[in-house]
Amino acid sequence: MYESILFPTDGSDGAAAALEHAVDHARQYGATLHVLFVADTEAVHTGMVGEEHDEVPRSEMVGEEHRQEQPSGLVNEGHEGAGAAVEHGEEVVGEATDAIGDDVAVETAVVTGTPYERILDYADEHGVDLVVMGTHGRTGLDRYLLGSVTEKVVRTADVPVLTVRMTE
């Protein structure tokens, strides 16, 4: 039934809970398990610093810390942070792969972008039959304010998505 299963992970406890289910399904169906980490480029701060004129204040698009130090133009303080996020992703994927064992075929990837979009792109590009994801189980205002990668994937994926709620 399933030949290719995608396990997107962020290294959280919720993802760890979902890994067991992903591995069980891969074993049961003899499927390849794809372990994916998305380095979130939305978390990288990019903005414009406006020029100072006699009566025109600098742009309000960046924090106070940039106003005295940066010339006019584009500020991307996340360039170094993106590299660190990719490095962290490689560690997370490595830890997940170590936990899987040798009896499951595994493919790994670390990509950058908007997490839910890249998860959906990866699923399409690799012919994934099932996505297995963890969820933190937030409800109400927390879920609304924080958003949920898992929820966006569930709502927009073309394949089944198995969600595993993190237990305390």
Rank of each mutant, 00 (worst) to 15 (best):
T114N: 15
Y116D: 15
Y116G: 15
E117K: 13
E117W: 04
E117C: 03
E117D: 12
I119Q: 10
I119S: 07
I119L: 06
L120M: 08
L120H: 06
L120S: 10
L120R: 07
D121A: 11
D121M: 02
D121W: 05
D121T: 11
D121H: 12
D121C: 02
Y122R: 07
Y122H: 13
A123W: 00
D124G: 10
D124K: 11
D124C: 03
E125W: 00
H126F: 09
H126K: 11
H126V: 09
H126D: 06
G127D: 11
G127L: 10
G127K: 07
V128L: 06
V128G: 02
D129T: 07
D129S: 02
L130F: 03
V131R: 00
V131F: 01
V132F: 02
V132Q: 06
M133W: 00
M133N: 01
T135R: 01
T135W: 05
H136D: 05
H136P: 02
H136A: 10
G137A: 04
G137V: 03
G137N: 02
R138T: 07
T139K: 13
G140V: 10
G140T: 14
G140R: 13
L141P: 11
L141D: 11
L141N: 09
D142Y: 09
D142E: 14
R143N: 11
Y144T: 08
Y144P: 00
L145D: 05
L145G: 11
L146H: 15
L146P: 12
G147W: 11
G147D: 08
